[in-house]
């Protein structure tokens, strides 16, 4: 399954945030978008997932060759899209396991084998070193920043999307946790031949990953593209140098 973003323009509250992005993510590919604060990375990710208050003013988003622009978020999820949220919503009273079961059943349109399902959740809870556990807790409610990020990766692992967009999977994580999360993302993506788009400010999580395509976003546009060597360049020269370099071209 391919995700194709064509000349995408996205506005909110009358202000254009994404100003013409083109991007193609194929099954099994690993892409990274880096960029300074306010460059439109999160807006792009949310627009792909169908966030209601974002308006696509121009361009299209295609999955498997079909436009998903008019689809609701659940329909996009059913096609195999997954968004790991930068700031996952806390929902008090909705049990994490109950939520996961509901999501799984919606996506697969079948009932869940409870024993197997719980086993899978427990397994990833251990792999991701979620020390306080997940079972018996409300969805993201009272989770630390790190727990929230790990819980998102756990969801990705259990729901097995075809293309996952991970919005800052490393923010809020300590040094050890970054490594654990990165390793799990690698494993899940590889096992399921998942297309991956990681959005991040920093290169630290990428030290444990092998991205094939790196895109730099600034002011709502992709201003530079390359391989992993671009990350090294960014580390050395900073965003400003790359962005101003692209403007001069």
């Amino acid at each position: 399954m391919d995700l194709e973003i064509k000349d995408l323009h996205v506005s909110t509250g009358g202000k254009e945030i994404v100003k013409g992005v083109d991007l193609m993510i194929k099954e099994g590919e690993f892409h990274v978008i880096m960029g300074p604060n306010g460059s439109g990375k999160t807006t792009l990710a949310k627009a792909v997932m169908g966030y209601p208050s974002l308006k696509v003013t121009k361009g299209d988003i295609n999955v498997g060759g079909k436009s998903i622009k008019e689809m609701k978020a659940n329909e996009r999820a059913k096609l195999g899209l997954f968004l790991q949220f930068q700031n996952p919503t806390e929902i008090e009273g909705v049990g994490f396991v109950n939520f996961m079961r509901s999501a799984k059943e919606s996506l697969t349109e079948s009932t869940t084998d409870i024993k197997q399902f719980m086993g899978e959740i427990r397994s990833y809870t251990e792999k991701l070193a979620i020390t306080n556990g997940i079972i018996g807790r409300s969805l993201n409610h009272g989770f630390s920043g790190g727990e929230k990020k790990k819980a998102e990766i756990l969801q990705m692992a259990v729901l097995k999307p075809k293309i996952a967009i991970l919005d800052e999977p490393d923010s809020g994580l300590d040094i050890d946790a970054v490594k654990v999360v990165a390793q799990n993302i690698n494993e899940v993506a590889k096992t399921n031949k998942m297309g991956l788009l990681v959005i991040t400010h920093y290169s630290r999580i990428l030290n444990y990953m092998e991205p094939e395509f790196v895109h730099v976003m600034a002011d709502g546009k992709i201003v530079a593209e390359g391989g992993k060597e671009l990350i090294t360049k960014l580390e050395k020269e900073g965003y400003e140098s790359i962005i101003s370099g692209s403007k001069n071209k």
């Binding site: 169908g50 209601p52 978020a73 968004l83 949220f85 509901s102 999501a103 799984k104 919606s106 729901l159």
Partner: peptide
Amino acid sequence: SLFYLMSRGSDE
């Protein structure tokens, strides 16, 4: 909250 749940596959 509604968007979060729907983004995981649940209908409205």
